[in-house]
Design a protein around this nucleic acid. Structure first.
Lengths: 146, 146
DNA sequence: GTAACTCATTACCTACCCTAAAGACCATTC
DNA sequence: GAATGGTCTTTAGGGTAGGTAATGAGTTAC
């Protein structure tokens, strides 16, 4: 494979990627779909929607967060009725977290709000640029989970 | 223009983009190129490198941060000798922030450290995926600044 | 010359994540 | 079959990065 990493293009790209991601994340924090839900909480709900259910430890690993943080997040989600906690069938140390019907409804609603935000930003990008982003989204996701 | 925004592909893409950006930003926070410099501080130095110099207010707008936050960031950078503060020539309320030679040297050094991080992650992506990211980086940056 | 506005700053507060350590529970080994 | 080591969750405490509200200095418009 060619030296993708040490050429100037890639160095510039990673630098640009880094600052863009940090800046976008700061803006996304304020652009919440639900006032009372932090970005990480949203992300956990998304993971649960994909995986069905998981233990707090699994969730912590998937979200690259420490276990104590996940404990707090799950507790908050439970208090809001978006998540259910059940004892693990095989191991009484663990718990099983799964989303409630209420969470599913909320995720659906959030999708339309996200689109509204996206529409506002869409005016600044042309079709080619959107195409690039659509292709990049899954790669970014993969990168984030590496 | 076709309805890029409301089709299912774009909805899925923005959802994926959102969670990837949030997750990556959490990881980047810990993956510092310099132990003593926060991502936002790095970003401000990058902006200064591009723009030459700016007032705190201008920097706050560019970084999408509130003025008081930028005051604190600039103060930290000044304490580290990476930034210089001078009175504004025309307006005595404002100040002019510019980077020192030390900052330039640090940015150069940070580039090689970033490459080390990149190398570690590179193993998980193939050449096509990197190509996609290289193309997407400037678009993401544009999006972030919209 | 004074009233309204702007820029930077100060003081305080909140949100989110971390580390360290404890508590409960397995699993292996003697 | 107790004990010891390991794993999962939780509790306690701390730190950092950001925000809002209010202040002070300086400018602009009337």
């Amino acid at each position: 494979m060619p030296d993708l990493i040490h050429d100037g293009d890639s160095a510039a790209a990673v630098s640009s990627l880094r600052s863009a991601v940090m800046l976008l994340s700061r803006r996304l924090k304020h652009q919440r779909v639900d006032e009372s839900l932090s970005p990480t909480e949203m992300s956990v709900l998304g993971t649960l929607a994909r995986c069905g259910s998981a233990t707090p430890g699994e969730l912590a690993r998937k979200e690259h967060v420490q276990p104590p943080s996940m404990t707090r997040i799950v507790a908050l989600l439970e208090a809001k009725g978006l998540v259910r906690l059940e004892p693990h069938p095989d191991d009484r140390r663990q718990k099983v977290v799964s989303q409630t019907e209420q969470a599913e409804a909320m995720l659906e609603e959030s999708r339309s709000k996200r689109n509204a935000w996206l529409t506002a930003l869409a005016e600044g990008l042309d079709e080619d640029e959107w195409e690039t982003l659509r292709k990049a989204a899954p790669v970014l996701e993969k990168l984030a989970h590496l």
